[in-house]
Design a protein around this nucleic acid. Structure first.
Lengths: 197, 197
DNA sequence: CCGATGACAGATTTCAATATTTGTCATTCA
DNA sequence: TGAATGACAAATATTGAAATCTGTCATCGG
């Protein structure tokens, strides 16, 4: 009923997010998505070849929102160490808020992430590129010492070293008492490593 | 049959490890353990109050073996940066070998680890103490700059920063192609942070 | 004509009956 | 006397038949 607008991939993705939020990753079906949209499930298959492709697209959309939120730090103009610290703090705060604010939804996205490692790998590449941009700026203006092998490797090392504070696999730890100082200690370690001697 | 020796906690733990190796964590039962030992399952309950306590003891034993293998680095006498690098490389190599050499057994221990987070926390504390000992030596003989807040915090930061290379949650990544250089990049980052300016 | 439909086959999930396992304890046996 | 046993109740896991879902496609209707 009420298919007032034309059926687009975008509307299907919104409906899929709603169904995932409501029923969780195990119970969400393509039939549910079609029901929310007031169409037959055959119509959904006109836009997405499989249920897996639909879930993958939802995952990609969700991850992309994170990248956008962090762009200001990557493209900013202040001192590189402050920008990198801000970027990492913002990433951690963002993840922590999502995990703590709605644990069920976070669990849902963790399942999707597990299903779509190729999408996640591409997403991680984007994040590492943002770190690399900040590190390159820092080296150019003398705040950071020249990177050991190359900037890309250093950026990846920064991302890996802070893994515990952004990888959803560790989400359960993010509400533990000492997590905030633990993050600051690692951040301080990373910045000490990068700064000009 | 053949209960030639007396039934000890030690023998039960060995039998439990064998049963876990053979049947995996989902299928291993107390009855299986008793069968291997040629006793009734009631006898096992004389030594371990519950099945959970038995599994916990197996987990503790397994983790303890890791701590022992790393002790030489913690108690060694060479330059602190080399000792710390050796300790971290050995830890990574050890985990990687266990994960790659027998993935099923590793999966079994990952289940046990998930069931016994209190045991794991204590084990992590032991490992961090070993790092702290090396860092303290490094500061004493001038190889490392004085730690930012205190040695314990710095040691924990070193452990956290290398999380991706020892936390079993990441075991699946340890056979990926670029993992070795990624580890070396993080290790190099950590050592640069610690060394006297 | 072209997007939408719904009947359909095969794959997957659910659910309830059935079987196994856990943990206890009164009894046995050395 | 004290370790070992095995029958037992309650909790948990397995199984297979029934229900639901996925993905296709011939047909419909604007």
């Amino acid at each position: 009923m009420a298919a007032t607008e034309t059926l687009t991939a975008e509307r299907i993705l919104e409906a899929t997010e709603e169904v995932l939020r409501r029923y969780g990753p195990a119970k969400a079906t393509v039939v549910d998505v079609a029901r929310v949209l007031g169409v037959s499930h055959g119509s959904v298959y006109r836009h997405f070849r499989t249920k897996a492709a639909l879930r993958e697209a939802v995952t990609e959309r969700w991850l992309e929102r994170n990248v956008v939120e962090l762009r200001p730090y990557a493209e900013g103009r202040g001192p590189a160490d402050e920008r990198l610290g801000g970027w990492l703090r913002h990433l951690f705060a963002m993840k922590r808020q999502k995990a703590g604010g709605d644990p069920e939804l976070m669990a849902t996205y963790m399942v999707l992430i597990g299903e779509n490692s190729a999408v996640v790998d591409r997403h991680v590449d984007h994040l590492v590129e943002q770190i690399a941009a900040i590190v390159a700026d820092g080296i150019r203006d003398g705040a950071f010492a020249a990177a050991d092998p190359d900037v890309a490797t250093t950026a990846r090392a920064v991302f890996d070293a802070t893994d515990r504070f952004h990888d959803p696999a560790h989400a359960a730890d993010w509400s533990a008492p000492g997590i905030e100082p633990a993050f600051e200690a690692v951040l301080s370690l990373v910045l000490r490593a990068l700064r000009r001697a």
